[in-house]
Design a binder for these strands. Structure first.
Lengths: 294, 294
DNA sequence: TGAAAAATGTAATGAAAGTTTCAGAAACCA
DNA sequence: TGGTTTCTGAAACTTTCATTACATTTTTCA
């Protein structure tokens, strides 16, 4: 990722410790300074590092060569690499996906990309904002409107289908933007508008956000990592990574966030919602269109 | 100790997040690059940081000023200071970059479940079957029909929307099962039917599979780990894990498989499909309904 | 659609950083 | 102690970095 590719089995700190006995007076001084508050103490400039250890810069330069680095910059690169490995999220790690398949197979490449998207999205997602958005969606006093663009329409549909069961007052805004003013007309102040807007942001959806906000509608926006222009009208914005080894963007993480939101709202409304689910089940039984609900 | 004494209540990452909406395109790009793998990604030289984010060095210089630093060196000093504080306090460390979220939060529980689903699904998925299914979908001589159930309709819709761009002869079967006989009437021997059927398997969809198979239609089925009864009529069955800490099943991995299929088919038809994408783009431009396609 | 404003990158410049050389200081040994 | 070796840092030198000014591109809005 960072392009720092220095092969070594040993960490810098291990190397320092094992070399310690052979080090000279000034070098030992430096070594202790480095191990003290490792590895941050090694991340400044060579001058800072030297000053901190009260030695001269050439001493530092000689020392890093003894540690097997070509120079101070490589020494730092290795420190950063170690740091990266130490603090990387456990989600990043996975045992090989589809076994017996070359890593280069599209299945594995796609899974890798999805995992990276997932990790990065979650790392940047503010759980307080998530909880607040879920709270808002759980307020049955206010209607919820859901709208998506050309591609994200399917996600809007998915979200709508679930929310419709969980709580009353949920409407899916038609994807045809000509009809949007009519929908806005029916929105009340305090209503919630959930918008999906990814990549080639449509101008119309920005207009919709403007109109809705002007009516006092509170907006939850699900968009990509670059952010839709509609974000400035949104009270809550979820920025989701959508990169994929494909000509198309990936909606997988967006789907994850959608499903998590659904679960969170369902939890908040459980008593009421359980009753609704039960009634829906009965309705299905009556029409014989579906078997059991759960 | 380090001499880096810059007073600030806010961490750099908090500052970036709160500034995010007001940032410009290149700055957002840089912001994400910094948050990604924070704070290591910010510890290289300004040139490295700029290169990693694919922006110019002046953009980095301007950005750090927006973050309230006098210059890049001060920015780095603050990052190191944060790092020092975080490392000396393991609890803070966990909170800071292991996603900022307590493990028990629904976001993490859901992500864990999705990850487990992904692993198990891919481990059991036969890549040869996957490739064969993609080959079949890439045969332009045969029409492709797509159908989904009540919940999986959104997935069917998503698959359809993409396939429609990639190749000709793709139809979405209406979700209303009353109309299905009409659709079957229009299916030719050798046509492909992509079916989504998850959990409470609908009786009608089994009937549809029977009818279609009787007409010589080849069936690709995306179902859950227990398998839809329609599987016995399907030439290719994808069994996908759908468990989630929710009252609902998770469609995330199904979405992943769908997107991977889309990418695989697109690769196979690239020459032809590129042309179609181009033409679609022109059409969008003409109608002014959308901006750029890609 | 075109003018004005904003954003972004190229290129030049001065300021540091990192490296090397070398002379003096310290340790070692006879 | 004197000679030798090793260690250390001052200073010169080269390279890279961070910053600024400016030109180009992109966006915005009338």
């Amino acid at each position: 990722m960072t392009g720092d590719q220095i092969a070594s089995e040993q960490t810098i700190s291990e190397a320092i410790r094992s070399l310690m006995p052979t080090l000279t007076r000034a070098e030992k001084q430096l070594a202790h300074s480095l191990l003290d508050n490792y590895p941050v103490s090694g991340l400044g400039s060579i001058t800072t590092v030297a000053d901190n250890a009260k030695v001269s810069t050439p001493t530092v330069a000689r020392m890093v060569k003894k540690l097997g680095c070509s120079g101070f910059p490589e020494f730092q690169a290795r420190l950063r690499q170690e740091l990266e490995a130490a603090i990387s999220n456990p989600i990043a790690k996975h045992d090989r996906w589809a076994t017996d398949v070359p890593d280069a197979h599209i299945l594995n490449r796609f899974a890798d990309a999805v995992m990276a998207n997932m990790r990065q999205t979650l790392a940047q997602l503010d759980p307080k904002m998530f909880d607040a958005a879920a709270d808002l969606l759980a307020e049955e006093a206010h209607a919820v409107h859901v709208v998506g663009g050309r591609i994200s329409r399917a996600l809007a549909d998915y979200f709508f289908t679930h929310m419709q069961v969980i709580r009353p007052g949920v409407t899916l805004v038609a994807s045809n933007s000509n009809a949007w003013p009519h929908y806005v007309l029916n929105m009340q102040p305090g209503d919630v508008l959930v918008m999906f807007d990814v990549r080639r942001y449509e101008h119309d959806i920005l207009k919709l956000a403007e109109m809705a906000q002007a009516q006092g509608v509170r907006i939850i926006l699900l968009t990509d990592q670059w952010g839709s222009p509609a974000a400035r009208h949104a009270e809550f914005s979820f920025n989701i990574r959508i990169e994929a080894p494909s000509a198309w963007d990936s909606s997988v993480v967006t789907m994850t966030v959608v499903e998590t939101l659904i679960a969170a709202v369902q939890n908040r409304l459980w008593d009421d919602s359980r009753d609704r689910v039960k009634r829906l089940e009965d309705l299905f039984d009556q029409t014989k269109m579906f078997r059991k609900f759960v």
